[in-house]
Amino acid sequence: MPEFNGFPEAALDFYDDIEMDNTKTFWEAHKDVYRTAVAEPMKALTAALADEFGEAKIYRPYRDVRFAKDKTPYKTHQGAFVAKGPSTGYYVQIGAPGVRVGVGYYEASGPRLASIRDAIVEDRRGGELERIIKKMTASGWELGGDKLKTAPRGYDADHPRIDLLRHKSMTLGKSYGFDPVIHTPELIDRIRADWRAATPFVEWVRTYAKG
C-alpha cells in the first residue's frame, strides 16, 4: 500500500467539476483523476488509521438512483466509514468543500433507538452524553442528525434533554475545509487525534444502543 501524502489539489478540482458536469461523459474522461487523486489517497489514508480504529469501508462513487428524483449518477464526495456497531462509527470524506470528519450513528432500529432514548432520560447516562457533547462542541464539533419536530411518543416534552431525545440519528462532525494540512501526510495525525477525542461519544452509543 502506498503511503498517504495528502489529497492533491486535483481532488478538490475534480469534485468542483463534477458538481457542474455530473455525467458519464465527464466521468469517463476523468476517471484516472478520480483514481489517482481521490480513491488511492483515501485507501492510503484509511489504511494508515486502521491499526487503531479498524478497517474502513470506502464507499462506491456511484449514486443509487433507483428511487431518487435526482438521477445524477455520481456522488459529489468520497466517503469512508469505520463501523463500530450497527450504522455506528467513524467517518471521513473529501469533496469540493475540502475534508470533513465525523462520528455517530446515522440510523437506528426501533429497539436500538428506544434503548438510546432510555439512556438519555436517565440522569447518570444521559448526563454523561450531555457532557461529552458539550466538550466536543466547545472544541469545534457540530452536532447533527435527523430529529423529530416534537417529543417522541412516551417521553416528557419538558425533559431537560428533550433536544437529544428528539434525535433519530446523532452525529458529530468537524470540517477541515481547505486547511493546507489536507494536502500533507500530517492529515493522518489530525484525523487520528480527532477520532480519539470523539471515541467517548462512539463508545457511549455502543454501550447503550441495544437491540
Rank of each mutant, 00 (worst) to 15 (best):
residue 184 T to Y: 01
residue 133 I to F: 04
residue 206 R to D: 09
residue 87 S to P: 01
residue 4 F to K: 05
residue 150 T to E: 09
residue 149 K to Y: 03
residue 111 P to F: 04
residue 32 D to E: 13
residue 135 K to L: 08
residue 12 L to F: 08
residue 3 E to H: 11
residue 123 D to G: 13
residue 86 P to M: 03
residue 146 D to C: 11
residue 139 S to K: 13
residue 29 A to I: 01
residue 80 A to V: 01
residue 142 E to L: 09
residue 187 L to M: 06
residue 132 I to Y: 04
residue 14 F to H: 02
residue 6 G to S: 07
residue 85 G to C: 03
residue 6 G to T: 10
residue 55 E to L: 12
residue 106 Y to C: 02
residue 180 P to M: 06
residue 18 I to V: 13
residue 169 S to A: 10
residue 176 Y to W: 08
residue 15 Y to M: 08
residue 16 D to M: 13
residue 115 S to W: 04
residue 129 L to K: 10
residue 140 G to Y: 02
residue 162 I to H: 07
residue 22 N to C: 14
residue 162 I to T: 11
residue 75 K to I: 02
residue 128 E to S: 09
residue 181 V to L: 08
residue 166 R to K: 15
residue 117 R to P: 14
residue 44 A to N: 09
residue 50 A to Q: 09
residue 27 W to S: 06
residue 51 D to H: 07
residue 89 G to K: 05
residue 46 T to W: 02
residue 160 P to I: 04
residue 146 D to S: 15
residue 184 T to G: 05
residue 66 R to E: 07
residue 194 D to E: 15
residue 89 G to S: 01
residue 76 T to E: 06
residue 182 I to C: 02
residue 138 A to I: 00
residue 143 L to N: 02
residue 168 K to F: 01
residue 205 V to P: 00
residue 201 F to A: 08
residue 204 W to D: 06
residue 17 D to N: 14
residue 123 D to I: 11
residue 82 V to T: 00
residue 37 A to S: 14
